[in-house]
Write a protein that binds this DNA or RNA. Structure first.
Length: 292
DNA sequence: CCTGGGACCTGACCGC
DNA sequence: TGCGGTCAGGTCCCAG
């Protein structure tokens, strides 16, 4: 479930609570939680034990902790329902506790990976020369990365033969955007989710990118978006940006700009929320790829 | 190559 | 009360 702002909130929690600590013992309680670690749970636990954790980093929705004394990292993805929690050692196990990391110190807390739907997980990977776990080399920089290349993104967008929301969710083009913030940015930009990317002018795509950044920064300032206790920071607390959403989840409620009831449309096994007046569907165009 | 559709999971909720 | 259908914030893999 979590998108970039929620993952960043978690990263900051890790930076504060586990930075510099040495791993004492690792328990893998569900094999799916380490399915991206091909050598399996026992290998994951053995290779992680004894290492000192460095400062947590993030690209898009991926998080990783470089090991301070080695050339590899613990990579994490929260999937749809994953949580990384720093809990007192004596706190009862969560129902969906999948991995426990104890530390070799006297602070009395441990790191827990909890995940109801098991789409997320942890794994160990060698770092590339630029300090990125090798398996996420294909993930694009995210829009809050100072080195994100706006011009390259806009150019790539125009070359795609797809629709704008699909492009926003394509993590190899721009990372960190998920279903909520895609709908929010499109609403702010007054763009329908099915607008062909090739029809976006440079000013339009620049404006859209600006809205993506604005909505993510605003969500970050509110501690992220959360509708229930499924998404929380490392201390188990929810963010409150859900109160500021303009599009996502607002079916039949009035558009905050024009008052027209918002609509929900099934879209790629999920939903798209939009204002039918502010975000007009694209006119049926000539089939893409047809030449005169 | 690129694009779109389905698979992978558990649980909550709704109507019958 | 139970049952079946739908929905949920993501990513990967494969067919075309």
């Amino acid at each position: 479930m979590p998108e970039l702002p929620e993952v960043e909130v978690v990263r900051r929690g890790l930076e504060r609570w586990v930075d510099g600590r040495t791993v004492g013992e690792v328990e893998v309680l569900h094999p799916r939680a380490v399915r991206r670690h091909p050598a399996g749970g026992a290998d994951f636990a053995a290779r992680l034990t004894g290492h000192r954790l460095g400062t947590a980093r993030r690209r898009g929705k991926y998080l990783w902790i470089p090991l301070a004394d080695s050339g590899f990292s613990v990579l994490g993805h929260l999937g749809m329902s994953g949580q990384l929690l720093v809990q007192p050692e004596n706190a009862p196990d969560e129902k969906h506790l999948r991995i426990r990391v104890r530390f070799d110190d006297a602070l009395g807390t441990e790191l827990r990976f909890v995940d109801q739907r098991t789409f997320g997980g942890l794994s160990l990977h060698d770092n590339t020369p630029d300090g990125l776990p090798d398996v996420i080399a294909h993930i694009a920089r995210d829009p809050l990365d100072p080195e994100f290349d706006d011009a390259a993104f806009q150019a790539a967008l125009r070359l795609r033969r797809t629709t704008v929301k699909r492009a926003l969710l394509d993590q190899s083009l721009i990372s960190g955007v998920g279903n909520i913030y895609a709908d929010e940015a499109l609403w702010r930009a007054r763009l329908h989710y099915e607008r062909p990317t090739a029809s976006l002018t440079r000013p339009r795509s620049a404006e859209l990118l600006g809205h993506v950044r604005d909505v993510m920064n605003a969500a970050l300032a509110a501690g992220g978006t959360s509708f229930d206790s499924l998404y929380v920071n490392v201390n188990g607390e929810s963010g409150y940006f859900d109160r500021s959403l303009d599009a996502y989840g607002r079916e039949d409620e009035p558009c905050r700009r024009c008052g027209t009831p918002m609509r929900r449309r099934p879209w790629m096994n999920r939903s798209s929320y939009f204002c039918p007046r502010c975000q007009r569907p694209p006119r049926a165009a000539a089939p893409v790829g047809v030449r005169a």
